[in-house]
Amino acid sequence: MKRLFSKQNRALLAELVRTDFKLRYQGSVLGYAWSLLRPLMLFVILYFVFVKVLKSGDGIPHFPVYLLLGIVIWNFFTEMTSQSLGSIVGRGDLIRKIKIPRWMIVFSSSISALINLGLNLIVVAIFMVLNHVPLMNTAVYLIPILFEVYVLALGCSLFLAAAYVKFRDLSYIWEVVLQAGFYLTPILYSVTIVHRVAYEKVLLLNPMAQAIQDARYAVVTHSPLNITTSRIFDNGWYMFVPFVAVVAALIIGLIYFRGQSKYFAENI
């Protein structure tokens, strides 16, 4: 671990992240402001569609913020995995010319995604204030929950980035998987609209669903309408399935990436 984060690697990581950020809003007039403006504008649209027009929410208190938090967490997962997917191939010029730790490239795009998550959370905080959501002391649990999402996304990212070197179809497949995942996860709708408990249980075994529901519970509302994984399984051992899945994703991702990274330079 000490070797992984040596002085040189830290400098390189910082430089890669910095470059990433500079290039992202290259040529736009508002520049960095877009990292805040983009989520803000998206949220305004969602707010009008789901809260004002469709009036979904099913009686969940502070539904706008509840909705936003779910979207922010899901977007973080989407952004990090899809950016990491192409990161190794995209940095092929570096990989073929110099020896830098390969994982550094995936790691740097994950840091960019984390920074964006931070900015998005600022926007969520703004909406919390506007919606008069009381700050609960369970809000600190947001940190381990986000860590869990990060670990899951990192495992997926490592696997995807390494596999994409050989299978370029993966970017399209992953796009579809993410789209399906978005609707299979209770983000836009509340779990209660699924009327069979068995389905609800299956739905909440998904680590993303568990993380989003837990985050909402910790930050936005303790309402019984906000069904979390631990509640639906009544603290039975099934509630640990999502965590096992997260750890498994990381281990599989790491092992596969390690094995493949030796041949990145030849295969790109």
Binding site: Q8, A11, L12, A14, E15, L16, I98
Partner: peptide, 14 residues
């Protein structure tokens, strides 16, 4: 910016 990026790739700190 390129000088600093290239330097980091060569193992120099900022």
């Amino acid at each position: 910016e390129n000088v600093f990026l290239n330097g980091a790739l060569l193992g120099f700190s900022r």
